[in-house]
Nucleic acid binder design. Structure first.
Lengths: 231, 231
DNA sequence: ACCTGAACACCGTTCAAGT
DNA sequence: ACCTGAACACCGTTCAAGT
């Protein structure tokens, strides 16, 4: 701890490799150039090392991907401090949505993991949602329902939204030319729909996530109230 | 059409290759052994041909995947014949959900396509939802909202549901051993949640899709009613 | 016209060998 | 202890050559 031999790191910033540094570099790579370009060989090169060295810090590529997903999930605010469960759930959902949008590759890794079940990485996240609802007086069944409804909306809407975003390399007239190819006799309402999109800003699209979120929160509120009335 | 030379197809069922036969075989392969095992080489072998021959019927692998997604989408009932928009939308949503569950690999291809935007394959589907809502008196804006809410729930919930399904090769005591590994002091509510799952049947899980669906339909109903009252 | 062998540029991963 | 060269078993895809 205290007697690290300090070699003068003049010509190379020879920061020693570590699992954390590998994961951080992998996350940066996925953020900047996409998940497809994150190969073991390219990641090695980015760290100034051959690909094989990475296996000293990571079990295999699956473990690498699991690790960077964990980093993304750690950005979510799991302990907002509002008075009521509804505001807390809303805050956590919005925080999760924002984190997932910051790392557009993450949602598909969570929902369609290359191999293992995703639940293990997300246990802390799931536990805190369940805990908040139970502590607000939800029955175990109602809390399970609530978690399902909220989580499927958070992840499901986000991946849907990302899948419908314009491709990064889209030319400015992308939507325009796409619409011109549509036969107005066959797809009249699709053209109208595109028109609605052109008028609305990004702010409006952000509203869509919260629109659905509030629908779910409304439904949960009614659902638990009816549960309480039964008792 | 009428003068096809009929070679006696005795020792080999030498059905000539065609795009349709290639796509059908690819879909069957994805259904039975998963998307990962669907390689050009394996598909060729299944059809009794070398992989390179497939490029006579399919532009590249992307085109192949687009093709089998189209087959899945064609299974959806886009023209139910109830009286009201709500029943029609509900029927189409349920039909879509069922088709996507029959082909568990399809939803991720729709939501995270390897390259191209997914909208092109789904135009007919989107158009028919928009058309049904507009014909029920929805404004263009309300119809857009409705389509977004419905489609994101259909695809988003389904991919969430599939991502949380037990792996195919799971041993019978999979959930049991997973729960035993959980520290009850750290994840008490997660354990309780697992307990709720053990008691409920598959039917109950099917109910979750319709629970969220009805929430959205309720919200849309209120939303358009308020729109009408304004006019 | 349709199919194939050989080849190319990639993957993830292993393992013995280096320092 | 950490890193590497060489190798293995795969990918998608091309292209000239076969029939």
């Amino acid at each position: 701890m205290s007697s690290v031999p300090r070699t003068p790191r003049t010509h190379r910033t020879r920061t020693p490799l570590s699992r954390e540094r590998v994961l951080r570099a992998a996350l940066d790579m996925a953020d900047s150039t996409g998940l497809d370009s994150l190969t073991m060989r390219a990641l090695g090169q980015a760290l100034g090392v051959e690909a094989m060295s990475l296996y000293n810090y990571v079990e295999d590529k699956d473990d690498l991907l699991t690790g960077i997903v964990e980093l993304v999930l750690s950005e979510i605010d799991l302990a907002p401090t509002a008075q009521d469960w509804r505001s807390d759930m809303r805050a956590t959902a919005v925080s999760a949505h924002e984190a997932l949008l910051r790392h557009p590759w993450a949602t598909q890794l969570i929902l369609s993991p290359p191999s293992a079940p995703a639940v293990s990485v997300r246990m802390g996240y799931i536990e805190s949602i369940l805990a908040r609802l139970r502590k607000a007086g939800f029955t175990p069944e109602a809390a399970s329902r609530g978690y399902h409804a909220l989580d499927s909306h958070i992840l499901g809407f986000t991946i849907w939204q990302l899948g419908h975003a314009l491709p990064e390399d889209a030319p400015p007239d992308f939507v325009d030319t796409l619409m011109r190819q549509l036969d107005p006799d066959v797809f009249p309402y699709l053209m109208e729909h595109a028109g609605v999109h052109m008028k609305s800003s990004e702010v409006a699209e952000e509203g869509e996530f919260e629109f659905g979120l509030d629908l779910i929160l409304d439904g949960l509120e009614r659902y638990v109230r009816s549960t309480w009335n039964q008792a």
